[in-house]
Write a protein that binds this DNA or RNA. Sequence first.
RNA 1: GCCCCAGUAGCUCAAACGGAUAGAGCGAGUGCCUUCUAAGCACAAGGUUAGAGGUUCAAUUCCUCUCUGGGGUACCA
Length: 554
Amino acid sequence: MRSALVAAQEAGALAPLDVPQDVPVEQSRHTSHGDYSTPVCLGLARVLKRAPLQIAQTVAAYVPSVPYIAEVTVAAPGFVNFTLDPVWVASSVSTILAAGDTWGDIALGAGARVQVEFVSANPTGPITIGSARNAVIGDVLASVLAAAGYSVEREYYVNDAGSKVRNFGASIYSRYAALHGLDVPFPEQGYPGAYVTELAIRARDSFGSAYLAADDREAAVRELGQWGIQRVLETVAEDLATLGVRFDTWFSERSLYDSGLFDEMLAKLRAGGFVVERDGATWFRHDDLEKDAVLVRSERVIPNPEDRPTYLASDIPYMWNKLMLRGFDRAIYVWGADHHGDVPRVQAAAKALGIAGDRLVFIIYQMVTMLRGGEEIRMSKSSGEFITLRELVDEVGPDPIRFMMLTRTVDVTLDFDLDLAVEQSDRNPVFYVQYAHTRIAGVLRRAEEAGWDVLESGDLRQLTHPSEQALLRKMLSLPEILKVAAQSLAPHHLTTYATELASAFHAFYRDCRIVSSEPDDADLSRARLMLARAAQVVLSRALRLMGMDAPERM
RNA sequence: GCCCCAGUAGCUCAAACGGAUAGAGCGAGUGCCUUCUAAGCACAAGGUUAGAGGUUCAAUUCCUCUCUGGGGUACCA
């Protein structure tokens, strides 16, 4: 389109003007508007002082002739519409079948290294349903970026430093002591869940009374806390796997202190004049921040040295570790809205350390309100009242959960009614998409039983029916969807796309008999079998990008 | 008070960089299974996109204000 503008100008048909670098071309919503359209002439009307429709007509004549465009038309008030060549569209069946599982892949990322860090829930208890949205967004985002040509790693940040560990350890210790008939008071900020008692039993079975005999109870509590966290993480990994979520790396917060990286960062910030000491605490100061932020709490308030660093204190060396030590080009953080206030602080710290701001990307998703029978459920690990992710997956299944968490943009809070979720799980849109996939599998099975060689080639030029063409065009747009999803870091576009694709297949199935018993139709049947196989490839790809199953039977 | 996110069909949500006739699912309505899976399809109903201004050839989309809901504003984690 851009070349058409340039050509028109060079030919003297258009007055000289600055041709926009990016000419917007988008998919038409209505078939009467062709397959793609551009409103660019509307915008040029003012500059050129000519009617937009007239400009469009002039420019349309200069659109270069390419094999995939059959027709260029102009529509009021000044749109230029392009219609794809049906034969070219039909021939794309071969392209898609040849691409197979890689159909849709694009080279947008050019191999840039991206890390997606997500979930990262405190390892002081099981993963609750509160982490479901985070897990699905992060996982699918990572898949989308991988398909878009990025080199992606999934990371879980383990909060194994600070007072949580001691409170957790002390909770286990108290239960553990009780098992030995000793009364050690349960900590005020402890974790009362039943899983703590189970951990205490495991500790007794593994270590006997060794921790009770230790001289330094504080050290024993810390050690038991670390041990407990490792046990919890094993469960966390298993539970997330039931949802289809897996991590490449588990990164320890504690290691940031043990390695001395925190001290290093503090020294750098101090040298840059970003650190102030006040009221016995260490503060981070930056012009971008309205208020100073505490890095290290004062001894007066928090006596134990291990408990003094704040989250921000860890976030700074963690960021440095990701971008400078491990060399990721971009670090993506998936955070709940309850942490959005921390974003400016981390960004200010990055700026202070000379790191380009666009290398840190924060996906802030809004909270999920958990309901049961219309009543809100409040959950917390420290109250022991929560519903685990595992329970939900066991009840509803991973795919409906993933679809529910994925259909919404990250910017809206969502209500999740547990009763409704279970009740409606068999009406979840995910089954609509999966059903289209099984339908194809069923057709292919039947065809083989009837003696067809489903791998045989047919004459694709026969795929001229509107429903065939509509399905094909939808199949062809997966790369564009991936581009949008990857650029805007919005994985939810995939659910809309998958539903539309399934709908296009169902329409094709209704209108076009795939396997015909009429001998005269044999060649057409072969072409349609190819189309069905290609549609199955695209459906399967879309489902797997979302981390869902593409079943052969339902 | 200040900061962030949202408000679209009865309900839950879409709508790609500001484009042409705002779309799905659920719910409620009417039809379609002796031929490839009815977990499907077709038709019909449902909307002043919270409200008021503004920018623009064009606004659900951008800006301002008001109202409503959610989140954040501690040396807690």
